[in-house]
Amino acid sequence: MTRTLTHLERLEAESIHIMREVVAESEKPVMLYSVGKDSAVMLHLARKAFYPSPPPFPLMHVDTTWKFQDMYKLRDRMAKESGMELLVYHNQEAMDRGINPFDHGPLHTDMWKTEGLKMALDHYGFDAAFGGARRDEEKSRAKERIFSFRTASHGWDPKNQRPELWNLYNARKAKGESIRIFPISNWTELDIWQYIHLNDIPIVPLYFSAPRPTVERDGLLLMVDDDRFPLRAGEVPVERSIRFRTLGCYPLTGAVESEAKTLPEVIQEMLLTTTSERQGRIIDKDGGDASMEKKKQEGYF
C-alpha cells in the first residue's frame, strides 16, 4: 500500500535533506534570520531536521536598526525557544555615519544589508549561510542554484554556476570561499503560508490586519512605527486598517489596506490579489530591470 506524499511533505523533506547536507559538509554554517515569514518557516524546518538536537548552528540577524519593533520582539523570542545562539550584526560604519532610509535611499540597503552581510560573514568566518530566498520571488532567483557558490569577495557569477543534479550538492570550496544555501528555493508564497497555518508557526503580528498609524508617500502606504519617522510638511499619520505582505525596514516597506485578521483570511487575500509579493518592496526597483541580479553579484542575498 503506497502513500502519496503531499507537495508540502515533499518540500519539507527536500529542505531538511538540504540542511543536513550543509551541516555534514561545511565547517561553520550559520542561518541568516530576517524574522519574516520565510525565515520563520526555514527556522521551523531546521528544528525538524535536527530534532531532538537543537539546530547545530547559530541564527544571525544582519540588522539595519530600522526594522519594525514587532520584528525585534519575535526575533528574541524565537531564538530563545529554539535554543539557538542569536548573533545580531550592525555595520559599524553605517552606524557611525547615521545611514538611514529617509536620507540615503539605496545607500541604506547597500551599506546596512549588502555590506553588513559581507562584513558579518567575514567577521565570524562562516563558510556556509542559509537564506530564505524562494525561486518564485524574482526572475534571477528562479535561476539560482540551491547551493549558490560565492567567491572570497562574496560575488555571484550567474553564468558560471555549478550543475546541480538529483539531490547531490557539491559543497566543496577553497579557503575563503563560501556558499549561500537556499533550502526553501522550491517553495511558493502559498506553500509558505499553508505550512505556517498547518504547523502553527509563530509569525510577526504585522502580517495580520490591525489599525495602525500610516502616511501615504510616493505611492506607498508607510507605517509610522516609531518617532524617527520624519513627517513632511502637511503629513499627518492616519489610522488605517493595514497589514504587510512582506517585511523589511519599516520606512521602505509598503502596507496594504486589509481586513484579514486570521491566517486563512490572509491566504485568501493573497490568492485573490492581482499584484506580486515584492511589489511593496522598494529594493527590487532601484537600478532598473536587473536590479536584484546586480545586487546578488555584489553579494546581496
Partner: peptide, 9 residues
C-alpha cells in the same frame, strides 16, 4: 543560459 524553475498549481 540556465535552467529556470517555475511554479504553478
Amino acid at each position: 543560459i540556465d535552467v529556470a524553475y517555475r511554479f504553478f498549481s
